[in-house]
Nucleic acid binder design. Structure first.
Lengths: 298, 298
DNA sequence: GGAGCGCTGTATCGTATGTTACGTATTTTG
DNA sequence: CAAAATACGTAACATACGATACAGCGCTCC
């Protein structure tokens, strides 16, 4: 239980929650998320906006808070009243005291943060973060730079495709790349459809494939044919490497293991975003007039 | 590029100090220690007490500040006036903006630290990792549990949709959810197409929307109509909250700022994966025979 | 379909807060 | 040492902020 030192504070017990040791509520943010379910729509909006940029909005005036949340002032006041505060200033003091505790001992914050909740979220998040660090650790700058150069070299076309679960990543990447450069195509729909697109592919072109296990035969066959036609393949796969790696010019092996029934594509996603950013920067550096034209269109 | 939207703050240049590049004053604390020498006794006491418990005292009222410093109210006001602020509220806003910068982007801290590998990838990765930690820090177990319960409660249908860049996330989530339970639909194609699907939606149904800035009008309109039909909305958005938050039952605010020309959806992606995993686990726990049947099919 | 309840916004009110004017004290300077 | 200038606090003022009463609306439950 936290005890606040600064500022003539009122001893509060956060309502029933703290009584009888039913639950341990140590911050207002927790208090809110604990009760947000039992709130009417307007007050919930207030709660959400507060959580979204916690705790700054709460330090501003009621008018600003209400404007940010898109509700009226009384709703904000009812909201803080429901949290157990007598009035708005008292609520603000509590937020300030909380800030004080955080700011004065940054050590305690990082110590308490890793797993404040024994819940099921933390392990998942931790594993994901680890996956990313590991993925990038095995990824050299040289390797990324080569891929970026290839993707930004606009003498050929870029095709993207993914598997059952990874196709959204291909779409995501295509959506961005198609903006900064022409001739970017996402291959969607049925197998026979993108099969036929092979005719358009040649030596100058790049094929970006996402394929994690269970590896899809159709993709492997597609990659093989493309490879035979001289298409350069950039493969996003997991650490066990899709068979497509045999045909790939560049292979990005992401970690996918998480405590879940599913594999995680998050690491690959981040690599994709990194490439998107790097390609964009590269094209800007090249002074591509397309980029300048885009600025104008916006 | 990072820009904070909250709190219409005034662009100040901290008086002469910032002009002509004589000195680089980036925080009010520096500004104070820069000028504390040229202050009269009373104001110096004010300055010292502010520094001593920076910046909390400055967020309280003039009366409290003056009491803590052992001076009178006008002295406090003269003090902030000497720092170059027009009035006390403006001074407080500046302090709050500073706090916002500290709290909301731990990225700035890690960015300034010497990166393990000097490559160009690192800042991007670090920012992304920070975004995820921040996103989850503002996300309570309770909140996630509520959403999971809703998504796993199979008395209604689940619809997913996203914006220009986030629709792949909706697809990714739909691809997984559709396997562990029936009645999961991703809304694709033209606006008029999913517009018509509104007919199928009712009180028991859930609509998962991905919308980060720049927020799309079509999505907002769609969400509003769905909301009017009683559909419960789960919103994935950025920290500035899409206008859809007004209609949403649950709001997940992810951090999107990265050193890139594009915003990052990686944090939202990880939240999505977390939910996918949790929903799957929930359904397993419920002993849904669908899951067992799936095992057999494999 | 009607009655009751609960939620929300508008408008008003009282007050706490920041602000300013003025007189006294303290320091500085010739 | 005298006189002026600067600094500081007391007290009155005005604004803007939080609080409250009330009415309209939608929702739920008979």
């Amino acid at each position: 239980m936290i005890s606040y030192s600064l500022s003539g504070f009122v001893k509060r017990d956060f309502g029933k929650a703290a009584k009888g040791g039913e639950k341990m509520i140590s911050s207002i943010a927790e208090l809110i998320s604990d009760r947000i379910g039992a709130m009417p729509a307007g007050e919930r909006r207030a709660a959400q906006t507060l959580i979204a940029s916690y705790p700054l909005i709460g330090l501003k005036t009621v008018a600003e808070f209400s404007a940010a949340a898109g509700v009226s002032s009384p709703t904000i006041l009812r909201f803080v009243a429901r949290l157990g505060f007598q009035n708005y200033p008292e609520f603000q003091s509590a937020l300030q005291d909380e800030l004080a505790a955080q700011l004065q001992s940054p050590a305690s914050r990082t110590l308490n943060q890793p797993s404040p909740n024994g819940g099921a979220v933390s392990p998942m998040l931790e594993a994901t973060l680890d996956n990313m660090r590991e993925t990038f650790r095995h990824l050299s700058d040289k390797q990324l730079a080569d891929i970026v150069a290839k993707l930004a070299d606009r003498r050929g076309k870029t095709f993207l495709i993914g598997g059952r679960f990874t196709d959204p990543l291909a779409r995501y990447m295509a959506a961005h790349l198609a903006i900064v450069q022409p001739n970017v195509f996402h291959l969607a729909g049925q197998e026979s459809v993108w099969r036929d697109r092979l005719i358009d592919m040649g030596k100058r072109d790049v094929l970006v494939i996402f394929d994690i296990r269970r590896y899809q035969d159709s993709l492997v066959r597609f990659a093989e044919t493309a490879h035979q036609r001289g298409v350069q393949i950039v493969l996003f796969t997991d650490q066990w490497l899709s068979p497509i790696a045999r045909f790939a010019r560049h292979v990005i092996a992401g970690r996918t293991a998480v405590p879940s029934a599913w594999d995680s594509s998050a690491a690959l996603f981040v690599v994709a975003e990194t490439l998107i950013g790097a390609v964009t920067r590269q094209l800007e550096a090249d002074g591509a007039k397309r980029i300048r034209e885009l600025e104008g269109l916006r």
